[in-house]
Amino acid sequence: MIVETPHAAHAVRSHEPWRSRAVVVGLVGPAVVYILALLAPALAILLVNSVYHFTGTAVQPILTFEAYHRFFADPYYGNVITQEIRLAVVTTALCVVIGYPTAYAIAKIRRPVWVITAYILIFSPLLTSTIVRAYGWVIILARRGLVNWLLAQLHVTTGPVLLVYNITGVTIALVHVLLPFTVFPILSVLLRLDPALREAAADLGANRLQAFLRVTWPLSFPGLYAAAQLTFVLAMNAYVTPQLLGGGRVQVLPLLIYQNISDLNWPLAAVEAIALIALVWGIILSSNLLFRRSIAIAEGRSG
């Protein structure tokens, strides 16, 4: 028996000579420099401002932790964070629940005309400004809006349902805004799946559901996961939608940051910004740890 060495292509990929590593650095470099050049000073300014003193009308460069103290001592901020996380989690969950079947269906379309139609439908929200869309939703969801009119016509409800200027309205609009960002990563993973894998599962006795659960689902999980992370981050940082559809009744950190900056309270705004960054990073990193194994397995690396 001939002794075979492990697959050559794989060996080449993991032990690249230095030259191709230089190419990679060269290609990634500009983006990294650009991001770091903007991000690092911005973060520095944030950190510096967060430890300054606010007199009530102006910022004084005196070292103090009073902004931090206020942020962590006042239960108001805890409530805002809880509400924001709940909003982002519910939005992400809805996006995934709607987005995965959508992506799955689009990936199955054969006729090019229908593929393009589906793409346009899914990505059309991105072609309109968020503000226009938000006002659109206000009109649709308002007390005398389209939805309430329909519900009344169909005698489903007696009085108007409050769908706007509360967390429900914000969630509905956010799902609409963010759905393309959920569909796309899932779709790209599903399109890359070799159709022969599903056929192989069928050949080995798996019916459609079993083939999905044992092959398509685990292999598309990385896409789903990336989609969920992206959606979550965008939902956490959403500003326009909570502002316009929340009508002041839905408070999230981006809104507070803006308000404090308007009030010239830069230290508090800086602390809130730092809290938002830490929160998003913390959740992303801890979920990465949690799902590390299933992602690695799905990508064909050892778990």
Binding site: E4, T5, P6, H7
Partner: peptide, 8 residues
């Protein structure tokens, strides 16, 4: 794992 195997 599959990626650790040679073609044969």
């Amino acid at each position: 794992r599959i990626h650790q195997l040679s073609g044969g």
